[in-house]
């Protein structure tokens, strides 16, 4: 580029600085044309709705007349005093706080096993990865059958080891555990692939050095693998926490469009869906969605701050 400008400048006598400036604005013009299709779609269907839904959250919205009465922060105040919302929040937090570490520990364990000299490594990796690519609706339908109280395979297998028969789909206290089991199955392989990529990024030299110093298997894991894997661990932690706060489809499918027995599987997004699209309280539902955003935002911020302290970048 510079060579061309120098050439043109010499031929025409126009200073190259001036030419570069013209060039810059010309390039700006074309760049905007290139960006236009993507930004038009994102603007209309992603960005603008964010502003609109915040506005709607400040209204008592009348769906039929498609207008609303401005009520300030009253929808948020109502959420704060709504026991149903608090229980949905609790279910979601319960799910996120158990399913994330459980999935991560198993996934890290599998990744470490696969990272040793294992034959058919890619075969195993593919097998673990399968649930992630499977449509959520199909996976959840299979779980409905597997966890059927009377004829399900899971209760049969549990019976073989002497564990009693569980009413998985009807017992309120088993609703979130069932979602956690489903979540582990669905996201295990995805996390395994991420951890495996992270492990393969650790230079062999660190292990050799540690072995020379007489470190055993556990010490290698504790003092080499774990600290050098922290960037991956941190990344997996953030995305799975955020994902956990958005659980919806599996609830909808497992309990056939309801929030489970006594609303025991009602998550934040399920709460949002029921308020928004069952009872058409758009203002109230939008406020709930903004609370969800707020939680996700805080989580990301906390994670970023904490990670500075415990993530070791090489």
């Amino acid at each position: 580029m510079n060579r061309i400008i120098a050439l043109v400048s010499r031929l025409t006598g126009v200073s190259s600085v001036k030419l570069k400036k013209v060039d810059y604005w010309k390039e700006t013009f074309w760049a905007y044309i290139y960006l236009f299709p993507a930004f038009l779609v994102l603007g209309v269907f992603s960005f603008w709705p964010l502003i609109r839904s915040f506005r709607i959250s400040l209204f008592d919205w009348d769906v039929l007349r498609n207008t609303g009465t401005f009520i300030g922060l009253q929808n948020y105040a109502r959420l704060f005093h709504d026991p149903e919302f608090w229980s949905a929040l609790w279910h979601t937090v319960y799910y996120a706080l158990v399913s994330t570490p459980v999935t991560m520990i198993i996934a890290m364990f599998i990744a470490i096993l696969l990272n040793s000299q294992i034959r058919m490594k890619s075969w195993f990796r593919t097998a673990f990865f399968l649930p992630w690519i499977t449509p959520m609706v199909a996976g959840a339908s299979v779980f409905v059958w597997l966890f059927n109280a009377d004829y399900g395979l899971v209760n049969h297998l549990l019976g073989l080891v002497g564990l009693g028969d569980y009413r998985w789909l009807n017992n309120p206290s088993l609703a979130i555990p069932l979602l956690i089991i489903f979540g582990v199955w669905k996201f295990l392989g995805f996390q395994t692939v991420l951890f495996l990529a992270g492990l393969q990024n650790i230079p062999e030299g660190y292990y050799e050095a540690a072995r020379v110093d007489g470190a055993n298997r556990f010490q290698l894991f504790r003092h080499v693998t774990l600290p050098l894997l922290t960037p991956t661990t941190f990344f997996v932690l953030i995305i799975s926490m955020i994902g956990a706060f958005k659980v919806f489809t599996q609830v909808y499918v497992i309990w056939a469009g309801t929030a489970g027995p006594l609303d025991s599987a009602e998550t934040i997004v399920m709460f949002f869906f029921q308020k928004g699209f069952n009872s058409f309280e758009f203002g109230y539902a939008s406020a709930a969605a903004y609370v969800l955003f707020f939680i996700v935002f805080i989580l990301t911020a906390i994670n970023l701050r904490v990670s500075k302290r415990w993530v070791h970048y090489q």
Binding site: L42, F45, S46, F47, W48, P49, L50, R52, S53, I56, N66, I242, F245, K246, V269, F272, G276, F277, F282, A285, S286, A289, Y290, L292, F293, V296, F297, T300
Partner: peptide, 22 residues
């Protein structure tokens, strides 16, 4: 764009539903 990624997709549902109806 990075900022836009922070917002959960659920926030877009109601306004887009209204847009689609209109």
């Amino acid at each position: 764009l990075l900022g836009l990624m922070m917002f959960p997709g659920q926030l877009r549902l109601i306004p887009n539903f209204m847009l689609a109806s209109n």
